[in-house]
Lab assay of single mutants.
Amino acid sequence: MVQRGSKVRILRPESYWFQDVGTVASVDQSGIKYPVIVRFEKVNYSGINTNNFAEDELVEVEA
């Protein structure tokens, strides 16, 4: 279970941040499909630095 402030590695192959490390900004408990919002240092092609992920697409590298 990841929690706010954890450092996580992204396992979603189609993601711009695949294999990159980001910080968990928040975790939604309402039961949505992609409840974990992760914030990154670098921006993607659209200038965005956050994205939603499912918990099984993340691996915690640092608490």
Rank of each mutant, 00 (worst) to 15 (best):
R9I: 10
L11M: 10
T50C: 15
V8M: 00
I10C: 10
V38G: 00
Y34F: 12
N44R: 02
M1V: 11
K33V: 06
F18T: 00
E55M: 15
E41S: 08
I48K: 12
R39Q: 12
D56Q: 06
Q3N: 08
L11D: 05
W17V: 00
T23W: 08
S46E: 15
T23D: 03
E60P: 12
K7S: 06
W17P: 01
I48C: 15
A25C: 15
A63W: 12
G47T: 01
I10T: 02
V8I: 02
N51T: 10
Q29Y: 14
E41W: 08
E41I: 08
G47I: 03
F18M: 01
Q19N: 14
Y34N: 06
V27L: 07
G31T: 06
V38L: 01
E60I: 15
R12H: 03
V36S: 00
I37L: 15
W17E: 00
V21Y: 07
Y45V: 12
Q19K: 10
D20H: 12
Y34Q: 04
S46T: 09
A63E: 12
A25D: 14
A63S: 13
V2C: 12
I32P: 07
F40W: 01
N51D: 15
K7P: 03
F40P: 02
D56K: 06
T50A: 06
K33C: 11
W17I: 02
V59R: 08
G31F: 09
Q19L: 14
E14M: 08
G5H: 02
R9L: 12
G22L: 08
R39I: 14
F40E: 00
Y45M: 14
G5R: 05
G22P: 04
V59Q: 14
D20C: 14
R12W: 09
D20K: 09
I48Y: 11
F18Y: 13
S30K: 06
I32T: 13
T23C: 12
P13M: 12
S46W: 14
E57W: 05
D28R: 05
Q19P: 02
D56G: 06
V21H: 03
F40K: 00
G31L: 11
P35Q: 07
S46L: 15
V2H: 07
F53S: 01
V27Y: 10
S30L: 05
Y16P: 06
T23A: 02
V61C: 08
T50E: 12
F18I: 02
G5L: 02
Q3H: 11
R9Q: 10
V27I: 14
V27W: 07
N52I: 06
E41L: 08
R12C: 08
S26V: 06
V43F: 15
G47A: 03
V24G: 01
V36P: 00
T23G: 02
D28C: 12
Q19R: 09
A25V: 15
W17K: 01
R9E: 06
S30D: 05
T50Y: 14
E62S: 11
V43P: 15
L11R: 04
D28P: 03
Q19I: 06
V36R: 00
V59S: 09
S46F: 14
V59K: 09
A25P: 01
D56M: 07
D20M: 13
I48M: 14
V21W: 03
E57G: 04
S26F: 14
I37E: 15
L58Q: 01
N44K: 05
G47L: 02
S15C: 09
E60D: 05
E14S: 14
E57S: 02
F40S: 01
D28H: 05
A54P: 00
V2L: 15
N49F: 08
A25S: 10
E62V: 11
I32A: 12
R12K: 08
S6F: 06
K7D: 05
F40Y: 01
N44V: 05
P35V: 11
I48N: 12
Y16W: 07
S46Y: 14
E41D: 12
G47W: 05
Q29W: 11
A54R: 12
Y16N: 01
S15R: 00
P13E: 13
G22H: 02
K7R: 13
P35A: 08
V2F: 15
V8N: 01
T50G: 03
A54S: 10
N49K: 05
E60K: 10
A54E: 06
S15Q: 03
Q29L: 14
N49R: 08
V38A: 00
V27T: 03
V27R: 04
Y16I: 03
R4Y: 06
K42T: 14
T23E: 11
K33M: 10
S15L: 04
M1E: 08
I32G: 14
K33Y: 08
V21I: 13
I32S: 13
E62L: 10
E57T: 02
S30P: 04
R4S: 10
E62F: 13
V61H: 02
N52V: 06
P35I: 10
S26T: 07
G5C: 11
V2Y: 14
P35W: 11
V38M: 00
Q19T: 05
T50I: 11
Y45S: 15
D56H: 14
G31H: 10
Q19V: 06
I48A: 13
Q3W: 04
T50W: 15
R12A: 07
P35D: 04
K7I: 11
V24S: 00
I10H: 03
N52R: 13
T50M: 12
V36D: 00
V2W: 11
G31V: 08
V2M: 10
D56W: 15
V8G: 02
K42R: 14
